[in-house]
Design a protein around this nucleic acid. Structure first.
Lengths: 342, 342
DNA sequence: AAATTCGCTGTTAAGGTTATCATGGTTCGG
DNA sequence: CCGAACCATGATAACCTTAACAGCGAATTT
């Protein structure tokens, strides 16, 4: 009574063998009406729940997948997590979530740990561009979907957004409104998404025949502030900033406010990645919006597709999702809340 | 070669028995220097990792705990998740994270699923006040820590903040600045925290000899807007709002802006629960700040304390953490960013 | 009527690990 | 120099489930 009931207990109570209980639970073979009823009754009476550890050990299926995010406390990442969880639940799967803190070693360890826990597949936002230690050698036969940032290893699927063209279009928008000196601000060129968005920025700048300016000092609010101060001391300070991600946007925004720079009057601001409250700041922020939930859904669906077909060796496919330009006040154009679709 | 190496493979390669490998890994008994070296070499050579499923099945320890949150995409919750993960990692544990969507049934199912996965303990933000179906009958011998909202069941630990006195102090602050008609705005009186904060509001109102006004229409942006519109048509509209949580604050804030109510000139606003960007809105928001990370740390520590001592039957203790009043612009007082500590 | 199929059920073994018991050898106090 | 205590190691069983095989009566086919 005091320890958890097992299949044996159920079998004994129902007066059948354990295989009958197993078959009843999994529907792997037919069980007669009367026996099924007895087993069902016994299960409810004992409040029996199958032990997933034993299931995973015996059968090949653990009914769980792993999700490795850089951080939890970022609405983009947790939005993805929510979408993945939802899809997994629909398939009867659990999701193990961990964080890598953008560190490839931690990422590797967490992935290994998940494999020790017999996850059937992994969804990962790889910590760094190209440098990842995740490869087929580690993963064995477990399918993996790279998310937000692709992994070159060809057997992996990946789901990304139009980083380059999204950045390109947003910078073009700034150029169209007369800006000549536009600064690209990021945290680290090592991160794939930042790199890709920088390419879009550079292309737009080049096409307009302008000069490019880039900085990767958006590590902390303080470092960002120092960087912007430097800009203000220039002979001709920049009239616009394009930021590579949410955090960079926040840091630059705060720094500009602290330094008394009026947005968009003295300097315009546009960033990559929308976030909650971006429409409630003053001024509201113009951003490139990524479909976070959609991305999560697609990634999870792709993983389950692989699991269903049981193929892990096929070459991976890259899904590129579209982004939207959300024009608010900070870019200085006259629209308000206008959403420009692909 | 193609399937994962097991302890047997390691043992064979090192020329020892499996128990020696097990002892080496777990340090449960002494192993001679030379043998240890051979085993270590074999482990690295095969890139062996113990199968956690088998470990959990055989031993009693699964080295994992479960965390059940209402949602992921809420910085308060994901902040807690981060703190819990960090503490767990320090203890060598993994964390299984799921969401209840504030639904007691889902919560129950998720908890049961986690027990099927042999988690050694649970940290839960219970979905509803009092109505929870989580009880010792379900949980058997697994310790549980209730988080943010207590569970009455006496054997459970819980970690909460000063909901009532925090609300009381904030409302007193509003009263001190001359407000006579202060509206309490929440999403649902069923949620423990909302209820507790309402009590604080009511106490402050009563002590000042004022009349109380409460609404629980902050379910969606639209319903909130309609509610505020009603207020504006009153003979004497409220001069201040106190909101029960992040979402309510956001909805009320947006609604007031949309309706052209100037904050804090026409109506002051103060809310419970701080969030990122609350200082970047216009006006910046005055809030009661909860120590989310600290709460997560304490809850996890408490759980591991129980696990270490192996006692699950002892009566639970309730830890109450202090809150801070963060006075910004929206309440209309003259401070800026001043933090009043308890 | 014998042979084949089918539906339902039970038995056995296996999956990877660890608790328990057992073994052979070494050291030490008496 | 003998039993006690100890160390390092191995063999066995068990944790709980399910795949594989086998059995048996009933229905269907030849």
């Amino acid at each position: 009574m005091h320890s958890k009931p097992t299949m044996k207990d159920v079998a004994r109570l129902a007066g059948v063998g354990t295989m009958t209980v197993s078959r009843f639970l999994n529907g792997t073979a037919s069980v007669s009406k009367e026996t099924a009823a007895r087993v069902d009754k016994a299960i409810h009476e004992l409040n029996y729940r199958p032990n997933e550890m034993a299931r995973a050990l015996r059968g090949r299926r653990s009914r769980s997948i792993g999700l490795i995010l850089p951080y939890l406390y970022d609405t983009f990442f947790s939005g993805c997590g929510h979408a993945v969880s939802t899809v997994a639940k629909q398939h009867g799967y659990s999701v193990l979530i961990t964080t890598s803190n953008e560190d490839p070693d931690t990422e590797f360890n967490e992935a290994a740990l998940m494999l020790q826990r017999s996850v059937e597949g992994l969804i990962v936002i790889p910590a760094n561009h190209g440098e990842t230690r995740l490869n087929r050698a580690l993963l064995g036969r477990v399918p993996l979907v790279a998310f937000d940032r692709p992994i070159c290893e060809p057997a992996f699927d990946s789901v990304v957004v139009q980083n380059e063209s999204g950045a390109l279009r947003m910078v073009e928008h700034l150029i169209k409104h007369g800006h000549k000196k536009i600064f690209f601000m990021g945290m680290s060129a090592k991160v794939y998404t930042v790199h890709a968005r920088l390419q879009g920025y550079l292309k737009a700048i080049a096409e307009a025949g302008l000069e490019s300016y880039e900085s990767f000092q958006c590590q902390t609010p303080e470092s960002t502030l120092q960087e912007i101060e430097k800009h203000l001391r220039m002979k001709t300070p920049p009239t616009a900033y394009f930021t590579s991600n949410t955090l960079a946007t926040r840091f630059v925004f705060t720094a500009l406010l602290q330094l008394g720079v009026r947005i968009p009057h003295d300097a315009a601001l546009a960033g990559f990645d929308d976030f909650e409250l971006a429409d409630l700041t003053s001024p509201s922020l113009t951003v490139v919006r990524q479909p976070a939930q959609e991305m999560g859904r697609v990634a999870a669906s792709q993983l389950f597709e692989r699991l269903k077909r049981g193929e892990t060796g096929q070459p991976g496919c890259r899904t590129v999702l579209p982004v939207e330009l959300v024009l608010r006040r900070s870019c200085g154009c006259e629209h308000e809340g206008a959403v420009v679709v692909q």
